[in-house]
């Protein structure tokens, strides 16, 4: 098999791939960062956030869901795609209530880190200021739905890894929201545990362990010294 049978070009650079790899996975393995939010190496592609949108042979699509194929011409690092990503991020910010100054996830939040990476300077759009609940019923964790971006990583982790099926997406369109699978709808009435995969996958500050907020000083947080692109490629991101 020749090189061209197992490679594509990404912004002019030849990227080798293994059979079955997505464009995002192959790019990451080759040390090229494509911005993404709902994709996670431990889970099958989801393709919901669209942050990883790239142009493949002239058509836009999600790098996390499109299989790498020989000879593909992929564009990612373009002003047009960065603008699309910036707008997507702005919509995520205004759709929820993301107040970074008081959020304990600040400095290790993927949404915030991506906003820095893509140079989002303002929310631009009118804030929705939705009314969303906090679920503090669990003794060790609390859910702050104000910050949920509905990436469904918790849904996938709880269902596919933990086998507990604690979270689900309900509602449609603007009414979409994460619900908890218990008679009361409260996390405290589930068997959610600190050892669950779902307890560690939230990319934002929606699922948080109680009472340890701000224990890491400014200067030692995940994204304090390097942007998400470098942290992600170095394999520190989880």
């Amino acid at each position: 098999m020749s090189d061209s049978d197992s490679s594509f070009t990404l912004d002019g650079r030849i990227i080798a791939f293994a059979p079955g790899q997505t464009i995002l996975a192959a790019a990451t393995a080759a040390g090229v960062y494509i911005p993404h939010l709902c994709a996670h190496p431990d889970f099958p592609p989801h393709g919901s956030c669209k942050l990883c949108t790239v142009t493949v042979n002239g058509r836009d699509g999600s790098a996390c869901t499109i299989q790498a194929a020989p000879g593909q011409e992929v564009r990612s690092d373009t002003p047009e795609l960065h603008e699309i990503r910036r707008v997507l991020l702005q919509m995520l910010f205004v759709e929820g209530n993301h107040f970074c100054p008081g959020c304990e996830k600040s400095g290790r939040c993927k949404l915030q880190a991506l906003a820095y990476e893509i140079e989002m300077l303002s929310p631009h759009f009118v804030q929705f200021f939705p009314h969303r609940e906090i679920d503090a019923s669990h003794p060790e964790f609390f859910l702050d739905f104000n910050r949920c971006i509905m990436c469904e990583l918790c849904v996938r982790a709880s269902r596919d890894v933990d086998g507990k099926n604690i979270f689900a997406l309900a509602g449609r369109g603007r009414e979409s929201h994460i619900i908890v699978n218990s008679p009361s709808g409260k996390l405290g009435d589930t068997d959610f545990a600190a050892t669950d995969k779902a307890a560690e996958v939230c990319p934002v500050g929606a699922i948080l362990r109680k009472e340890i907020g701000f224990a890491t000083p400014i200067g030692a947080r995940l994204y304090d010294h390097a942007p998400i692109s470098r942290v992600d490629l170095a394999g520190q991101e989880k």
């Binding site: 100054p101 008081g102 959020c103 304990e104 906090i134 109680k210 907020g213 701000f214």
Partner: peptide, 14 residues
């Protein structure tokens, strides 16, 4: 009111 208590010392600075 309604926020977790450990968040407050950071939030109130604003």
């Amino acid at each position: 009111e309604g926020r977790p208590f450990w968040e407050v010392p950071v939030t109130v600075q604003r």
